[in-house]
Computed example of a mutant assay.
Amino acid sequence: MIKYQIVADPRVANDLKEARDFLNSRRKGLGSKFLKEYKVLLKTLQSNPDFQVRYKNIHCLPLKTFKYMVHFTIDIPSKTVHLYAVLSTHQNPNKHWL
């Protein structure tokens, strides 16, 4: 099985922190559950990143429980997945997107 390397844009760390803080403000411990689910999603991307292209060459994969979506590209020759954002599906994408 081919494993893809995951490379995250530095802004992804901020997206994750904002999501964790927001979810913890709603209910204690919810942010930790979000991060655990995000890590499971990363393992999925390592083994099979070929998910729906939403716009241009950007693929999107929603988390199962939380209303967040990971935005990424795939570089097949180098076997690399580049993460660009982890966004709430309730946010205005024009406010946050690259």
Rank of each mutant, 00 (worst) to 15 (best):
K79Q: 12
L98V: 13
R26A: 14
D75L: 04
R27I: 14
A19C: 03
H59S: 12
K36F: 06
M1L: 06
L87M: 15
Y4V: 13
T44L: 07
L98Y: 13
Q5C: 13
P49D: 08
F51A: 04
K36E: 12
T73I: 01
F22W: 13
H96K: 12
S25A: 15
V53D: 01
H82L: 05
K33G: 11
D75C: 02
Q5D: 13
H90P: 03
S25P: 10
V12S: 00
G31C: 06
Q46F: 08
V53G: 00
V12T: 02
K67L: 11
V12R: 00
P93V: 15
P93H: 09
Q91V: 15
M1P: 06
L23W: 06
A8V: 02
K39Q: 09
K39V: 08
F34Y: 12
D9M: 03
N92F: 06
N24P: 09
L35W: 01
N94W: 10
N92K: 09
K79Y: 07
A19D: 10
N57K: 02
M69H: 00
D21G: 05
K3R: 08
Y38I: 04
T80D: 06
P49F: 02
N92A: 12
H90T: 14
D21Y: 06
N24C: 08
F34P: 09
Q91P: 01
L30H: 05
L35I: 10
Y84T: 05
V81P: 04
V40N: 07
V70N: 00
I6D: 12
Y4T: 12
L45H: 03
T65D: 14
N24F: 06
Q5V: 15
D75S: 05
D21A: 11
K17V: 15
V7I: 15
Q91M: 14
S25V: 12
V53Y: 01
M1D: 10
L45R: 02
V86K: 00
A8G: 06
S32N: 07
T44A: 07
N14H: 13
T44F: 01
Q52H: 07
K79C: 10
A85Q: 12
L42Y: 03
H96S: 09
T73P: 03
A19W: 04
Y4R: 05
V12N: 01
M69W: 00
L63C: 01
D15P: 07
F66V: 00
H90Q: 15
L30P: 04
R26K: 11
